[in-house]
């Protein structure tokens, strides 16, 4: 029997080359230093930082998290030190890791803040890509940019105009059609899309007759959202050409492969990092083994290769 060559785990996200397709989702991995005692960070495919804004943000009033059936709600509200401190205090550690660093950014008031942030990050060598978080449900706004295709297009286009870095757009699941927004991001020059951000949810303590988190509503994540997220990745995969970074309740190797079969080029662990801080590396080795066992040389062979179940 002819053995296939060793599996090649490398994937391309636009101009970024990842040694393996496993990344960590924004806001669930801090600035990576929180995890250094648990794992060898250099073995990750890429790291996405907590979302950064122009000014420091103290975030929402606590309580900010609660557990829900197979998931959790959060309303952290983008607490972060602001771009100045981020560059000074967090970049040096990330730079030393010598793996792709993706910085997630968001605006608080005006979309122009994205341009300020992108311009600053464009000059930093350690930054491989910029992820546009236009989908955070936890900042008080009537509507998110990612809930409107033309706003998404305009924003991505504007940022595209000022940076040559790889651009990723993070999409919200809280829309009628994710593919429509994904298409707008692609047309405007986004080199990849990341989905999904959290679903807007709510949970009530019946004894206190009160919401479980201070902001009333928050973002739902974890295994509870996985089937919804897989469906959205599949829909988007069938509409666009650029790579998809899939996430939503990935807890183990099986759920990671599920996203690849739905069409994801890379996957991100989110909530799982809180429970099992080194799970992302467990998924990397599990993925390698799955490829060896199934004679898969490159994930391209199975990406989006989904059959329809029949009796």
């Amino acid at each position: 029997m002819v053995k296939k060559p060793k599996p090649d785990l490398r994937v391309e996200i636009g101009s970024c080359i990842l040694e393996n397709p496993v990344m960590v989702a924004s806001g669930t991995f801090g600035y990576a230093e929180e995890f250094k005692g648990f794992m060898d960070l250099r073995k990750l495919g890429a790291i996405v930082t907590k979302t950064i804004t122009v000014k420091p943000r103290s975030g929402n009033l606590p309580p900010r998290t609660c557990e829900t059936p197979s998931g959790m709600l959060n309303s952290v509200g983008l607490e972060n030190p602001g771009i100045g401190s981020f560059i000074k205090e967090k970049i040096p550690f990330l730079e030393d890791l010598s793996i792709p660093i993706i910085v997630s950014i968001a605006s608080e008031d005006k979309p122009d803040e994205f341009l300020v942030l992108a311009e600053l990050l464009d000059r930093i060598k350690a930054v491989s890509a910029i992820e546009l978080n236009i989908s955070c449900p936890n900042i008080k706004k009537d509507r998110l940019i990612s809930q409107d295709a033309s706003e998404t297009f305009n924003l991505v286009k504007a940022v595209r105009g000022i940076t040559g870095k790889c651009l990723i757009t993070k999409l919200s699941p809280n829309v009628t059609s994710v593919p429509e927004i994904a298409l707008a991001a692609q047309e405007a020059g986004s080199e990849a899309v990341a989905l999904v951000n959290t679903f807007i949810g709510m949970s009530i303590d019946i004894h206190k007759r009160a919401s479980r988190i201070n902001s009333l509503v928050g973002g739902l994540s974890g295994p509870a959202i996985r089937p919804l997220a897989v469906r959205m990745v599949w829909e988007v995969y069938n509409k666009i050409k650029v790579p998809i970074i899939g996430m939503g309740g990935i807890m183990d190797i099986e759920s990671a492969i599920e996203f690849v079969l739905a069409g994801a080029t890379a996957v991100s662990t989110g909530t799982a990092n809180f429970i099992d801080p080194a799970i992302s590396l467990g998924i990397v080795s599990g993925l390698r083994k799955h490829m060896e066992d199934n004679n898969i040389a490159d994930l391209r062979e199975i990406r989006g290769k989904l059959k329809i179940c029949a009796d």
Binding site: G27, T28, E34, R64, N74, V76, E79, T271, N273, F274
Partner: peptide, 11 residues
């Protein structure tokens, strides 16, 4: 949610 400083939930 995490207990080791990553989620910013317990402030």
């Amino acid at each position: 949610a995490c207990g080791f400083g990553a989620c910013l939930g317990c402030v």
